[in-house]
Simulated assay, not measured.
Amino acid sequence: MKDLMGKAIHDYFHNENPEDLQTETSISELDELPVHYLFREFSEMNEIEQKALSLSQGKVLDIGAGAGSHSLYLQNEMGLDVTALDISPKSIEVCRSRGVKKAVSENMLHFSGETFDTILLLMNGTGIFQSLTVIDLYLRKLSSLLNPKGQILIDSTDILYMFDRDEDGGVYIPAEGYYGELDYTVHYKGESEDPIKWLYLDYNTLKNAAENNGLAIEKVLQDEDSYLAKLTKK
Results as ranks from 00 to 15, higher is better:
19 E>S: 11
51 K>E: 12
13 F>P: 02
39 F>Q: 04
45 M>I: 04
31 D>C: 11
23 T>P: 03
22 Q>L: 06
53 L>G: 15
35 V>P: 00
11 D>S: 01
46 N>E: 00
42 F>D: 00
46 N>F: 05
28 S>V: 06
30 L>R: 13
22 Q>T: 03
27 I>L: 12
56 S>Y: 08
25 T>Y: 05
18 P>Y: 11
32 E>G: 07
48 I>W: 14
31 D>A: 14
53 L>S: 14
47 E>N: 08
44 E>K: 12
46 N>M: 00
52 A>V: 09
27 I>T: 12
22 Q>Y: 04
51 K>M: 10
13 F>W: 05
55 L>K: 12
47 E>C: 07
37 Y>M: 10
38 L>Y: 03
51 K>H: 10
38 L>G: 08
24 E>Q: 02
54 S>E: 14
21 L>Y: 06
32 E>Q: 12
29 E>I: 06
19 E>W: 03
41 E>A: 09
38 L>N: 02
44 E>L: 09
54 S>Q: 15
22 Q>F: 01
11 D>R: 05
39 F>W: 02
14 H>A: 04
27 I>D: 08
26 S>Q: 04
31 D>V: 12
31 D>Q: 14
35 V>L: 10
54 S>T: 15
53 L>N: 13
36 H>K: 15
35 V>D: 13
48 I>C: 14
15 N>K: 15
35 V>I: 15
55 L>G: 08
13 F>A: 00
14 H>G: 00
28 S>R: 09
11 D>T: 00
17 N>C: 08
40 R>N: 10
22 Q>A: 06
20 D>S: 05
